[in-house]
Amino acid sequence: MSHGHSHGPCSDHAHEHEDPERGAMFSLYTKIDTTGVECLNERVDGSGKDVFKPWEDRLNIEKFVESDDDDVELLFNIPFTGNVKLKGIVVIGGEDDTHPSAMKLYKNRPHMTFDETSLQADQEFEMQPDRTGEIDYNVKVAKFNSVYHLSILFPRNFGAESTKVFYIGLRGEFMQAQRDAIVITAYEARANPADHKTNLLDGAQHQIR
């Protein structure tokens, strides 16, 4: 298992550096196809979508997702509107022992179920409690450089009967779906053949000189 983070656990100064640039880094939530987001084992239907929100709203505890009674697992299926190069994840979990203690990432497995979580994850993390978004878990970019769907499994917590998550922040780069590039290429291919002949002739003349 790997565990990378760029900041230490929460400190008394957590609120003093509200950096707009840091907020911009975690803007991939705007590229999520929210109508297709699924959260398996959520206690309240549809609540899993609420944890994907602006960085500045990450400390808002009014909306959250909690696992069903006596079952600590939560599985998120997150489709994007294009391709994503994922670089990092921030997770703000619940109070006491309801915070997730482990996280597994699976790429490009739409509509993943708990039956499939026995498959080898693309990356795994041991987690620390984080109530302010200070811990940034670094993702292996080489493995997550073309992600159109991300599944996040929280298999356990720190000992509570249910797991609670307030915020999931995704850091990385967004690329439009590949079909847009194909359309542009096809359009360019319809250039006037006469133009190409002239260019070739000019090139030959230059070489002769």
Rank of each mutant, 00 (worst) to 15 (best):
D122I: 05
Q123V: 05
Q123I: 08
E124F: 14
F125H: 12
F125A: 07
E126Q: 05
M127D: 05
M127V: 04
M127W: 07
P129L: 01
P129G: 02
D130N: 08
D130Q: 02
D130G: 03
R131W: 12
R131L: 13
R131D: 13
T132W: 07
T132P: 01
G133L: 12
E134T: 10
I135A: 02
I135W: 00
D136R: 03
Y137M: 15
Y137H: 15
Y137W: 15
Y137Q: 14
Y137V: 15
N138K: 09
V139T: 15
V139D: 12
K140E: 14
K140V: 13
V141F: 00
V141D: 00
V141S: 02
A142H: 06
A142P: 03
K143Y: 06
K143T: 07
K143Q: 05
K143W: 01
K143M: 02
N145A: 04
N145S: 08
S146F: 03
S146R: 09
S146I: 00
S146P: 00
S146Y: 02
V147H: 07
V147Y: 08
H149R: 14
L150C: 06
S151N: 14
S151E: 12
S151L: 10
I152S: 02
I152H: 04
F154P: 00
P155H: 15
P155C: 14
R156P: 00
R156D: 03
R156Y: 00
F158S: 10
A160K: 09
A160T: 08
S162Y: 10
S162Q: 08
T163R: 02
T163M: 01
T163S: 11
K164P: 03
K164T: 15
K164V: 11
Y167A: 07
Y167G: 05
I168W: 05
I168C: 03
R171D: 13
G172N: 09
E173V: 06
F174H: 12
M175R: 13
M175Q: 09
M175S: 08
M175P: 00
Q176F: 14
Q176R: 13
Q176I: 14
A177H: 11
A177G: 03
A177M: 08
A177Q: 07
Q178S: 13
R179F: 11
R179P: 00
R179I: 08
D180C: 07
D180G: 04
A181T: 00
A181D: 02
I182C: 06
I182E: 12
V183R: 05
I184P: 01
A186H: 08
E188L: 12
E188R: 10
